[in-house]
Simulated scan of single mutants.
Amino acid sequence: MSLTSEGGHGAVPTGAEIPVEPRPAASRRDWPLYEVFVRGKRGLNHVHVGSLHAPDDEMAVHAARDVYTRRNEGVSIWVVKAADITASSPDEKDPLFAPSGDKVYRHPTFYEIPEDVPHM
C-alpha cells in the first residue's frame, strides 16, 4: 500500500487497498424487541406471553420456543416486532368505542329468537 499527503491532512492511503475499520457487532440491546404469542391447544386463541430481543425473525421464533414453551405448553408460536404493532391507548377507550354504543342492532338482545331454534 502506498501513502500520499493530500491537502495537508497527512498520510492518506491510495489505491484499492484502503483499510476499512471493522464495524462492531451489534449488542443485544440493539436487537429489535419482539412480542410473543403462544397458542396452548388447538382451537384456542394465541395469547400474549411476553417479550424478547432477537437479531432476526427466525431467531425470535427459536428463542420464544426455548423461553415460553419449555414444558410443551404450546402448539403454535407467533412473534411480532413490537415496532410493527399499532395499538389504541386505554385512555382513548371512550371516544374510540362510544360510537358502537348507540347501534342497538349490533346487540343480540335486539333480535327475537324463535322457539324452534336450538342452542341459542
Rank of each mutant, 00 (worst) to 15 (best):
S2F: 04
S2R: 09
T4E: 14
T4I: 13
T4C: 09
T4R: 15
S5K: 15
S5W: 06
G7L: 13
H9N: 15
H9T: 13
G10S: 03
G10D: 05
G10Q: 07
G10T: 06
A11E: 11
V12A: 03
V12D: 00
P13R: 09
P13I: 08
P13Q: 07
T14E: 09
G15N: 11
A16T: 07
A16E: 10
A16Y: 07
I18R: 14
P19K: 06
P19R: 05
P22T: 05
P22S: 05
P22W: 02
R23F: 01
A25Y: 05
A26R: 15
S27Q: 11
R28C: 05
D30H: 07
W31V: 01
W31C: 01
P32N: 07
P32L: 01
L33R: 06
Y34L: 02
E35S: 02
F37R: 08
F37I: 00
V38E: 02
V38R: 03
R39T: 01
R39F: 01
G40F: 01
G40H: 05
K41I: 03
R42S: 07
L44E: 08
L44C: 00
H46Y: 11
V47H: 01
H48L: 12
H48M: 09
H48R: 15
V49N: 07
G50P: 12
G50I: 04
H53T: 07
H53M: 01
H53E: 08
P55L: 08
D56Y: 11
E58D: 12
E58K: 02
A60E: 06
V61A: 03
V61Q: 04
V61P: 00
V61T: 03
A63F: 03
A64R: 06
R65H: 03
D66V: 02
D66A: 14
D66G: 06
D66H: 06
V67Q: 12
Y68E: 01
T69R: 08
R70F: 03
R70V: 02
R70P: 11
N72V: 09
G74T: 05
S76N: 09
I77R: 13
W78R: 15
W78A: 14
V79D: 04
V79M: 04
V80T: 03
A82N: 06
A82Y: 06
A83Q: 12
D84N: 15
I85H: 00
I85Y: 00
T86W: 09
A87Q: 07
A87H: 07
S88W: 13
S89H: 15
D91R: 12
D91H: 10
D94E: 14
D94I: 11
P95D: 13
L96F: 15
P99S: 02
S100K: 10
S100G: 11
G101V: 06
G101N: 12
D102S: 13
V104S: 11
V104P: 09
Y105R: 09
Y105P: 00
Y105V: 08
R106L: 12
P108R: 10
P108L: 06
T109F: 10
T109E: 12
E112A: 08
I113K: 14
I113Q: 13
E115V: 12
E115D: 12
D116L: 02
D116Q: 09
V117M: 13
P118H: 07
H119Q: 04
H119N: 13
M120N: 05
M120L: 03
